[in-house]
Design a protein around this nucleic acid. Structure first.
Length: 124
DNA sequence: CGCTTGACCGGAA
DNA sequence: ATTCCGGCCAAGC
């Protein structure tokens, strides 16, 4: 065995939480996007990470601490994923001023581009 | 310990 | 628009 496989998931999860904490108020990111922003775990095949990174992000969000704005992580379709707290998630986002159209969010408008692009000129 | 499911994604039919 | 598929990991039961 030369290459270990994600020998410490906890570390990966904490990296995910760190990234999510940097997402600004009234903006959203997708699972796949977060997977790309996170520093890839060493020793993981890039193809494997591409395929399952987004899912790992999902697992990480399922067990995240309360100080993480988990409501700002949605799927690539611009919708809130189907899970027990979906209603609460939407409620939180709307409380931040995010507008849902037909159960969907306009990613063009609300998706966060990254740390280098502060608030895209919009307030909040 | 083995089998099933998954807060996913991108592309194809 | 909707449904299906490959990906081949990790947690839950």
């Amino acid at each position: 065995m030369e290459i270990p496989q994600l020998k410490n998931p906890q570390t990966f999860y904490e990296s995910v939480w760190h990234v999510v904490r940097t997402v600004p108020h009234s903006f959203v990111v997708t699972y796949g996007q977060v997977a790309q922003m996170v520093d890839p775990p060493s020793g993981i095949d890039p193809a494997d990470y591409k395929a399952f990174g987004p899912r790992w992000v999902g697992h990480a969000m399922a067990v995240c601490p309360d100080d993480v704005p988990w409501q700002r992580v949605i799927n690539s379709q611009g919708k809130v994923s189907n899970w027990p707290r979906a209603a609460e998630q939407r409620k939180r986002l709307e409380a931040e001023g995010v507008i849902f159209g037909n159960d969907k969010i306009n990613l063009k408008q609300y998706q966060w581009r990254g740390p280098d692009e502060p608030t895209q000129g919009r307030l909040f």
